[in-house]
Each structure stands twice: as C-alpha cells, then as structure tokens.
Design a protein around this nucleic acid. Structure first.
Lengths: 353, 353
DNA sequence: ACAGTTTAGGCAAACGTTTGCCATGTTCAA
DNA sequence: TTGAACATGGCAAACGTTTGCCTAAACTGT
C-alpha cells in the first residue's frame, strides 16, 4: 500500500490533481466499486452488507475522505456554493452583512463567494454569469441595480434574494427594514430634540431604499407640523461620504445651517460632520444629524451621531432562511427586520430607546 | 436533431444542468467533434481548416459560449479560483485588503473566495481543506494563525501568500509594511510633538506584526531619549476596539494619562478615544495618540488621530504578483510597501508628511 | 423443487473540459 | 512511385461524483 502510493507519485508527471482521497481510492482499498463507496458515504447503508459498510466507513474515517464538491457540482447542481454580489466592500454596512451571511451559510454547509460589483451593472452581469457557470445554487444581491443578466436570471427563476434595495424589476424576496418607518422615526427624534428648521440630504439618483427613507421622513414632518418647510439638497452619486459632504456644503451655502438633518446613511452623516468641522459648526449642539445604519464604530468615535440601527448582524440568518425557502419552492415575500433609534449626545453616553 | 433534444428534455427529470451552452452544443451544431471545438475555443487554430475555424468561432460568438470553469477544474487544476482567508471582515483594514485583492484578481481573470476565519485555527483549517477540494489555485492568508492544516499545506508546497502577519512557521512570501520602522516613525512623531511621558498599549498576545511595531517604537525612543520610561500596558485579545479601551483604562488607572500613546492599530486608538471621552480627557490636546493603519474614515470622523497609513489599496496588486511568481516557480520573498505618517489635528485639516 | 423476492453490489452514463494519440487524406520531394 | 511530411479532425481517457439499471446469489414460501 505505502509502496503503491510512493511509486505513483514518482512516475506520474503532474501532481495527482487535488491530492485528496477520492471515492476511487477508498474503493480500491476496500475492494469494492466506486458506487458502493458513494452510497455508503451518502448514508445509504441498506445497499451493502454490514461487513462492507463497516469496512468502508472505517476507511473513510481513516483516510479522511471528503466528497469533492467540484465533482458533485458537475454531476448535478450540488455545488454548495452561494454568491453574494455587493457594491463596494468598503462600506462597513456591506461588511457587516457579508460577515453575518457568511457565518449563517457556513452553518448550513455552504460556502459564500463574495463579489464586489462596484455598483456597476456590467460587473453585476459579469458576476452573475460567472457564478452561474460555477453552479452557484443561489444569489444574494445587495443593493441590486437593473441589468440585463439580472432580468434574465429572474426570468429563469433562479433563486435570488435581494438585500437592502428592492428588486429593480419588482417582486422577489427582500431582506431589509421598513424604510418609510425608519424615516418617520428619524423625524420624530428630531422633533423631540426641538428642531425647528429641519433638512435632508441625499444622493442625486434615488434608490428605492433612500427614497423611502426620505419620503417617510418628510411625510411624518408634514403630518406632525403642517406647513413646516423641509429643506432638501442632494449631492453627486457614488461614495456616500463625498456625497454627504457636497450636499451639506450646498445646503448650508444657500441657507445657513439647519438645526437638524436627516442623513439617510451614516456615511452621509460623516460627510456632513466634516463640512461642519471645516466651518466651525458644533455637532450636535448647533446642528443635530440623525443617521441611518448605525455603524458599529459610532459607539467608539462618533458619539455625536444618533442613528437608526439596522440589525445587519441578523441579516445573515434571514437571508439563508429566505434562500432555503426559495429553493424549496415555497413562495417567499419580504422580511422586514426591526430597526431601533440609538440616541447619542456628544458626551459619549448612549441612551437606548 | 431538434426532435432528439425535445424528447430528451421531456423524459429527463432534472433541468439540463446549468443551462449554459457547452462545447457539446457547439460541436453538434457545427457538425464537428467536441475536441475540435475545444481546441478552437482555446486559440489552437492550426488544427482545423480555415472554414471550420470560422464556422466554430461564429457559433461560439453567437451562442455566447464560455468555458465552464467547473469542468476545467475537474479536468486538471485550472479553476481560476483563489481563496482569501481573513480574520473578521468587520475590520475596515481587512475590507480594504479584500476589495483591492478582489479587483486585482479579477483583472487577471480570477475569482476570489473570501473566507472569514474569525481568527480561529480550526476555521482556518476547515477553509484550507474546503478550498483545496475546490481546486483553489492559491491561498492568501491575512493574519495567519498557526494550525495543522496550514503546516500541511506548506509541506505540500501549495502557493500561499501571507499578508499583514508573517508565516507562523517561517519563510514564504509576505506582503506588508516595515513594521519596526513604522513603530519608529510613530516614536519620531510623538517626540516631534514634544511628548515627555509616552506609553504604548497592545493586545496581550503579541502577533509578529504588533510585536515589531511596539519594539520599533520603544527602541527608537530609547535610542533618542536614553533613560526615558515608556509605559506599556496590554488588554485582552480579540476585538481591538475592546482591547484598546481596556488597555487604556488599565494604563490610566495606574498612573494617569500619558501625553502620547502608540496604538498599534487604529481600532485600538478608537478604544482609547472612548476611554478618554468617558474621563473627560481631551484628545489630542491632553493625550496625543498615534495609530497604525490609517482607516479611510479617519479623514471624516477622527480628525484627532494621526496615523501611519498602510497602503492597503495597493496590497492587491502586490499580492497577485507574488502569487503568480509563486505559481511560476520563481522564489518569492517579502514585499514591504511604503507607509506614511498622516498628521492630523483636531481642527480637521490634514497635514501630509 | 420451483417461482418469487430480497440482498449485495457492479456497470455505465452523465456533467464539461482538455489532450495525447490515432486515422485518414492530401501534398511534396526524390 | 513511394515514402515522408503535413493537414484535418476524431477517439477516448481522465478528473470525482451520483444514480438508474442490471445481475447474480441467496433466501422465502408453498
């Protein structure tokens, strides 16, 4: 036995492929066919004698056999692979979603491939194709954009879960929060702080997510303070940091600083904070921003930012549940996870709602 | 032909696998063998007549044929897959490394699988095995920990690039910065700021990276100010935020606040900042911290933190270069990328060195 | 004793590639 | 005219699985 292995390594040119023990290795050693080993390895114990089963199981354990997922994929759709498409990994919110999803998938035996689409439709398409040809069993698309291949995937009824931003073509499982209500909660918070001249900044092109947040905010303000003027400014798309900074500068150049601002993402609030710092405006005393996301770092270095916490840490579980339901054929709808306003003052102490 | 296809689809149970066009589809349609199509698709144009080549190329374009990477993997080690193993994706530094590496790999036609090892040896091992059995062509291990499977992989001479933290078993390609010099630069900065009672905080278990930074810092201080006492405190491992916070509290409880502190990672500096906020100590006026990493968010929300910028955005290119060299067989050594101190004062304006 | 059933397990196809080797047919030079 | 060289392209194995179907032999019941 030992000899055989050595000799094989010696006169074969390339390394024996993966170097892992395969069904064939076990089969040879046990003196049975590959089929038998495969069946036993998959728990079909009724098809072989007790003696054979014992022998094969012993060898499987001894040699540390593990079914090769590539062979399985090729055979038929059992790749145990799920692809997550996300715009920029740099965004801490994306990282949090990715981390929790990765853990949830691993817990059910799946491996996640994380693809950075840079928010570009062409890259989103490229990755959809690439992952399909790797037999990905499902797709998780965070902040999807409309793209031909996405539409094609939907037509083919491939399992796709949308996160954060709804399916641009409508329908399909969605994991997120109630964005309108989050906006409304932000409005309530600012009113409770005594704000009299509120404003909102946002990116020029509105995704469904941002639009809902902004509308929820404005509608609630109008409902509770009819006639109140809500100033609204946008900044260039792309990076939310730059966008928040630019929008804040436009906003304040044209009418001075508001005493309260909805920033529909924490990154935009950071942008506003920088603009304030440059102009010597004290945050949150002179202008009270409220963010949405509640980046984990806020507790550490942004004690001036009240923010609506989105439970990204729990997205993973919801996502894999939806994905499994979807693959099982049951119809899956929206999952709206609870959000919560986290109040902070500059002093540093956090007051949970 | 048509008939056959239909009949096949009719009495076969599962959907025809991936739904993508395969070599066989093209071959049937072109009336040639699979081998011929394969060769043409791979650019071996000398093995068929000009007419055949033209016909096949046309069909390949028309049907949008793309070689299936799973078939290729199975055939022999051409998976175009690289695995990155990283501890916690939450750390913004990891996210930056992952993002740049992903882009660099994509540019050369590779796909990256990102695995979160949570800094646990058992998960690191699990992922090494899983990725090997998916025929990953290389491994990028960020902040590696010692583990049996890693040692085994090294013995098998699998292509592994170490990032940020050196190979715990010694040797091998490494991408990072000159950590001793970074520590020394931090010392120079604090001295330039007129610091007289410096300190350093760090995690209780020292990785090679952190140890080098701390040693470089202390050695430089002793060299320039012989006899100067450098207070040194550690905090519990795990999360650098908590660690920095705990270490700062221990440090200040036992001897008051120092006027300058080396925090060997930005996250530890954030921990210290929180402790300072709770105790009403003004940063950086009363205590001047210097971090290492220079998180991108510093410019936005931590204008009080001078930090040594590590060019994570450029790690990707260096990593894939090393990986390719490694696979090509050339001996690859360490790559130390240039770092740079970024000076900041609370006011917000950044002064580049 | 004989048909029928169960037990134990092997065969081979299929998934999509790649590639060494073989088989024709044509062209060319001596 | 007869090899040799070249052009063109197919065959089949291999990678690692899974699974429908087949084949024996060994039982079971009457």
């Amino acid at each position: 036995m030992q000899m055989e292995g050595i000799v094989n390594n010696w006169h074969r040119e390339p390394a024996p492929s993966s170097g892992q023990t395969s069904l064939a290795d076990i089969a040879v050693e046990a003196g049975v066919s590959v089929s038998t080993v495969s069946r036993i390895a998959n728990g079909d114990l009724g098809r072989a004698s007790a003696a054979t089963v014992a022998k094969v199981q012993r060898l499987i354990a001894e040699r540390g056999y593990r079914p090769n997922p590539v062979g399985r994929s090729l055979r038929g759709g059992d790749s145990r692979l799920v692809a997550m498409l996300a715009p920029n990994l740099d965004n801490p919110a994306m990282a949090a979603i990715a981390a929790s999803t990765e853990a949830a998938l691993r817990a059910v035996g799946y491996v996640m491939i994380l693809c950075d689409t840079h928010d570009r439709p062409d890259l989103q398409d490229e990755y959809l194709r690439a992952m399909r040809s790797r037999f990905a069993e499902g797709f998780i698309v965070v902040s999807a954009v409309a793209s031909p291949e996405l539409e094609a995937s939907l037509d083919r009824r491939e399992p796709i879960v949308f996160v954060n931003r709804r399916n641009p073509y409508g329908g399909g499982p969605f994991i997120g929060i109630d964005n309108r209500r989050a906006g409304a909660d932000a409005a309530d918070h600012l009113l409770a702080c005594g704000v009299r001249a509120p404003a909102v900044i946002h990116p020029a092109e509105l995704s469904s997510t941002i639009r809902e947040r902004v509308e929820g905010f404005i509608d609630r303000l109008e409902e509770r303070r009819p006639g109140l003027c809500v100033r609204r400014y946008d900044g260039p798309g792309g990076n939310h940091l730059d966008c928040g900074y630019a929008a804040a500068k436009r906003l304040t150049a044209e009418g001075g600083w508001p005493d309260g601002v909805l920033c529909p993402s924490d990154l935009m609030a950071y942008g506003l904070f920088r603009a304030a710092g440059e102009q010597g405006v004290r945050i949150p005393d002179e202008c009270c921003p409220v963010g949405i996301d509640d980046n984990d770092l806020n507790d550490w270095i942004a004690p001036w930012l009240s923010s609506i916490k989105i439970p990204y840490r729990h997205f993973g579980d919801a996502i894999v549940t939806s994905l499994r339901d979807l693959r099982a054929g049951s119809s899956v709808g929206e999952v709206l996870l609870p959000h919560k306003l986290i109040r902070r003052r500059s002093g540093g102490e956090t007051i949970e709602n």
